[in-house]
Amino acid sequence: MSEIDFSFLDLVRQAVPGATIDTGDSRDMASAFVDREHLVDVCRTLRDHADLQFAFLADLTAVDRLPSSPRFEVVYQLACLGPAFGTGVARRFRLKVRLMNDDARLPTVSGIWPAADWAEREVFDLFGIDFTGHPDLRRVLLPDDWEGHPLRKDHPVQIRKDTSSWSPMQLTEAEFTANMKAAREHAARAARAIVGQRGQGD
């Protein structure tokens, strides 16, 4: 297997001078830890820098490292598509952010890669990690009334409890009646219009 190239990270270090970027050992692609204070700046550089152009966020997920501390790692899988997208070299890069258990929050990157929107919702849903500045941070896979975050290591594997997995449309009774009434009136108007046209034709 060829050596993993970490040299492009120097471009990021130059562009975002204050950021701590630690390269870890990695078997498949370049990977680095970044501090969350500079996460957004680093991400924007990764996407926009002329020699980097990581325009494709392949996936965003988290890992729970309980009992070690810091407990959480949020993982960003990035790709630069290279000649396929009219840019230089095709590259892959894995960015990670470490988070403490009592302060599991980090800024959203959904403004940089819109793909992160639902992916961050999923991490919030399953790990309970808060993405500050996310436009619509609510559960995506589990029902709204679910308690707990199942992919945390301290979440029991088997729980037996009554679930109400059916989430109703958010309508009051009055709104529902009004909606039905409007639809009926609309149908009646349409029917009258058709009858009227026929009358003219005859």
Binding site: R27, A58, V75, Q77, A79
Partner: peptide
């Protein structure tokens, strides 16, 4: 360690 090897599935990466 950790690893991610992308493949081309029927629906994309």
């Amino acid at each position: 360690g950790d690893a991610y090897v992308p493949i081309e599935g029927p629906r994309g990466e």
